[in-house]
């Protein structure tokens, strides 16, 4: 757990920076591993339960492994009316997993969200925090195909 150690050191193991540490861990591993939480608690000297409270309070943290690419389908009112559920069905077919699950190869996980605040662009899909406006099943298939291709250059970012 060298990387975790480095993340903690980056913030001087200070209690007031734990949320930033958790965000960095989440960015690196796509979720918060149990061992990572325990290490942060021990190094920053805060009770594990306090860290667990923070990790479960914020929606941006996940305690379950997430795929490399996180696909979020908006099902807010506007997106729902514009056919967001059809996108959910298309994704379930395309990826072979249900909402909230991760593909067995660990490349994609797929969840639904309520309104991302861009209703004029409905129906929306968010992939790795990038907005894909006015989504259709065909466009979705194309985007997935692009993401599936190995992209060594993009991995560095």
């Amino acid at each position: 757990m060298r990387e975790i150690e480095a993340i903690i050191e980056r913030y001087g193991a200070q209690r007031r920076h734990v949320i930033s540490m958790l965000q960095d861990i989440q960015a690196r591993f796509h979720y918060l591993p149990k061992d990572a939480l325990m290490e942060v608690a021990a190094r920053v000297r805060i009770p594990l339960i306090d860290l667990y409270s923070i990790a479960t309070f914020y929606n941006c943290f996940s305690l379950l492994p997430r795929g490399e690419h996180v696909i979020k389908v908006c099902l807010g009112t506007a997106c729902h009316l514009k056919g967001g559920t059809r996108l959910v069905e298309a994704l379930e077919r395309e990826l072979g997993v249900r909402e909230g699950e991760m593909t067995p190869d660990g490349r994609f996980s797929f969840e639904t969200v309520r309104c991302v605040g861009a209703c004029a662009l409905a129906p929306l899909v968010l992939i790795d925090e990038r907005y894909y406006p006015k989504m259709t099943q065909r466009k979705l298939t194309q985007v997935l195909a692009r993401l599936r291709r190995p992209q060594p250059a993009a991995e560095a970012g």
Binding site: I49, D50, Y52, S53, Y58
Partner: peptide, 8 residues
């Protein structure tokens, strides 16, 4: 510090 609030 054994127990606490979780979720939201």
């Amino acid at each position: 510090h054994a127990i606490g609030f979780v979720n939201r």
